[in-house]
Design a binder for these strands. Structure first.
Lengths: 208, 208
DNA sequence: TCTGAAGTGGACTAAATAGTCCCATAACAT
DNA sequence: ATGTTATGGGACTATTTAGTCCACTTCAGA
């Protein structure tokens, strides 16, 4: 939302907003499938059925478009995860969350990886603003996981001395690393295995 | 080694081998820093001080060069890890291995991530051969970790019913996910945290 | 309803980029 | 020695790509 409009404070009619949204949607799909670097503006134009002047009317250039894509993907992922994790308070709930992610990724045999993670690795070293936005999104996502862990703690399913933040970091790393290994192997098994190991660790903390 | 020479079976003089190596070395550095997609052949030429005909003499094109880079990076990483892990047989040894990786990554504040992992995410979905090579390299790397875990098992530091292969997968995912989070945050802390969690889990298996 | 700003289309440009080609020189085998 | 093959330099081309420009249309408020 912050970097949403390139020409800050400009008026934006409903028609304009629609065009802008179509551009972002097309760019999001293309960049997920082909990668950011391999996606050209002409392809985005063709896919969204919009002319070049429109693109430069709404965005300062490719970098700005990429940032808009990051915002868009980020919103979607965070909303999805908020719905999936917002009310989870048991280990079983976490396992169901794991199942959903793994099954979803299995549909593509692991290809393309995590929508947010792929953007992050490709963009982080080239665009400081984009990197910051992505970093914040990961923090938010991790916060949702930490919330689940705190609720586990409250219900006694996790000892009070466990650091929920560190466990959330470890769980997120297992998830992202799992995505990456699955993408490279074209097989979701390593992703399932790595999340399972993280969950087993969390579970084991209350059995000692 | 397999995809090493583009024009298979051609003679290769010492001079030619040197030129080829210079091209690969320059391409490796550039692609690590700038990314594969953002690295142009002209840049590789300039950095290696070689003319275009040489590049096309030794490689069929950019894809072939990328595969040579993967082979080169893979060899380096595997050799490094073989030296670091080949004789490790204690949890303490694993922790020292962790320290070395974290400290090394801290020098860049996490930037660029894992040499192999970055290549994997960027190339896996576009070049099937490259993906396979990377997948094999990850398997080899994981095998080294599994070897350590088997030695732990032999010495009684890990129960015999533990699946060393699955634990190695989880450890590798924690490492790669940690690299990614560190790269996005420009801070190695999450990498350290995630590997620590994986190691803590491994350690905890013998204390129950 | 009038006016200025937002929205739109698409041709155009300049630069970059992958890949080709040709000719020259060095190395090697016999 | 000599023919053959590897190595080398670098100009050249066709295409792609980001980005510009301008004429035209639609919209919203005074």
């Amino acid at each position: 939302m912050t970097t949403a409009d390139s020409h800050n404070g400009r008026r934006l009619t409903a028609r304009g907003a629609k065009t802008r949204a179509r551009i972002v949607a097309a760019a999001t799909d293309l960049m997920y499938i082909k990668g950011v670097g391999a996606t050209t503006l002409d392809e985005v134009l063709a896919a969204s059925g919009v002319s070049k002047s429109q693109l430069y009317h709404h965005f300062d250039g490719k970098d700005a478009l990429v940032r808009a894509v990051i915002d868009h993907v980020g919103e979607r992922v965070i909303e999805r995860e908020r719905e999936a994790l917002g009310h989870v308070s048991t280990i079983r709930g976490l396992r169901r969350w794991r199942d959903a992610l793994v099954q979803n990724n299995a549909l593509r045999h692991g290809a393309y990886g995590c929508a947010l993670g792929s953007l992050a690795t490709e963009v982080s070293d080239h665009d400081a603003l984009a990197r910051q936005a992505l970093s914040q999104l990961f923090t938010e996502w991790q916060g949702l996981l930490a919330g689940v862990l705190r609720r586990l703690q409250d219900s006694g399913a996790l000892p009070p001395e466990a650091s929920t933040d560190q466990l959330a970091t470890g769980l997120m790393a297992a998830l992202q690393g799992g995505y990456m290994l699955a993408q490279t192997a074209r097989d979701v098994t390593p992703m399932a295995t790595s999340i399972d190991m993280a969950l087993a660790h969390i579970e084991s903390l209350s059995e000692r």
